[in-house]
Design a protein around this nucleic acid. Structure first.
Lengths: 205, 205
DNA sequence: GTCGATTATATTGTAGACAATCCGGGGACG
DNA sequence: CGTCCCCGGATTGTCTACAATATAATCGAC
């Protein structure tokens, strides 16, 4: 859908696969064969192998020698309980870094993401909701302009992709997810840092 | 069990390069050419490229398309100040996980690492000291047996490799580094969790 | 002598070929 | 009837070859 021509610094293969894993489109345990992905993406096996290395270093894929690659299982609950406060710390740090510099371009980008999220909520498309949620937070991290921050954040979110499944319980209240994110952006726009931090933390579970 | 001989899951190339970067043997900004490393390690360029992907995902290497790869600079001080407490949290978490299960094999492994560290301190070989220090902490994390924990830890240490350079200031007191680690292992052996946590935190700066 | 354009070299991007290894099925044997 | 062994297909591991691009070196104009 998206993510094609722009950023050659990261191959389309690894980016697409990561998104599919994080959003749950690719279930944990799914087998990933080099030839299959190679023909699916229309690239050589070398590029697929490079993507596997990257994803396995991020813990999204488990690659055992001569046995192929599978989508990694989620982290156990105890680990997630360790990670969630860390992720809150990192995102709040990023938020404070950029809070005073947010401009119209930022709000436009978030607005676009919110639109996609609203549509996804309306359709009850939880993969798409997760995708928009990820994009929402990623935008904040990338705005901070600190590569080190992004790398840590990516490692962290790779471990708690499951939390999108919890939201499936809500079903009827799916639109609430969109509403909460909209309120968060409003707190950005209103320059209310305290409220923004509080809302942001609430969103990371 | 082990982590050495078998481990094709991580190529020698990426492991060696990571260690050289973390210990400072490879300075930030150093240019990494595929052909050069290919002939140095006696493998094809494909494997070198796979290593680059892994290292760049860990933030140790910056790889710009068509422009080659260089060793990434260290994180700025502010980011390090964010990361250090996180690393403390993660390592203390791992310590609590394994503390009651530590056995003779663990102490033997740490003893060996301590020996190497003592020799390195005696020679004032700071790269080797850093290497032993890394091995020391890695052993703790690997002992916890949680892949997710290791992945996060690796990302974190990749960002604060600089702290080994600060220790260079001590020069004459280099042996103190070894002594502190020895004391830490003693607190493990004495089953003194509170002291162990305190000493471990002190060591992460 | 300096600056700019052009050629030459070095390096990366990608694909494909071949060998090594794993996995599942089928048959022989007890 | 079950177990073991062997084989064929599928998959991974690795390298080399070729094309595309960046970097440098060279040469000419002013």
């Amino acid at each position: 859908m998206t993510a094609e021509a722009d950023d050659h610094s990261e191959s389309m293969v690894s980016r697409t696969l990561r998104e599919e894993i994080l959003t749950g489109r690719l279930a944990a345990g799914s087998r990933l064969t080099e030839a299959g992905l190679s023909s699916r993406f229309g690239v050589g096996r070398g590029l697929v192998r490079e993507a596997f290395q990257k994803l396995s270093s991020q813990g999204l894929v488990i690659s055992r020698p001569r046995r192929g690659a599978v989508v990694a299982p989620e982290a156990p609950r105890e680990i997630r309980n360790l990670i969630i406060p860390i992720r809150r710390t990192v995102e709040v740090y990023a938020l404070r870094l950029v809070f005073d510099e947010l401009d119209a371009a930022d709000f436009a980008a978030w607005g676009e993401i919110l639109d996609r999220m609203r549509d996804a909520c309306a359709r009850l498309d939880y993969h798409a909701i997760a995708e928009a949620d990820l994009a929402f937070h990623r935008r904040l991290l990338e705005r901070a302009g600190q590569p080190d921050l992004i790398i840590i954040w990516e490692t962290l979110v790779g471990r708690i992709r499951s939390h999108f499944r919890k939201t499936q319980k809500l079903s009827a209240d799916a639109m609430e997810i969109h509403e909460e994110h909209r309120a968060l952006v409003e707190s950005f726009r209103g320059r209310d840092l305290a409220a923004a931090v509080r809302l942001l933390k609430e969103k990371i579970t």
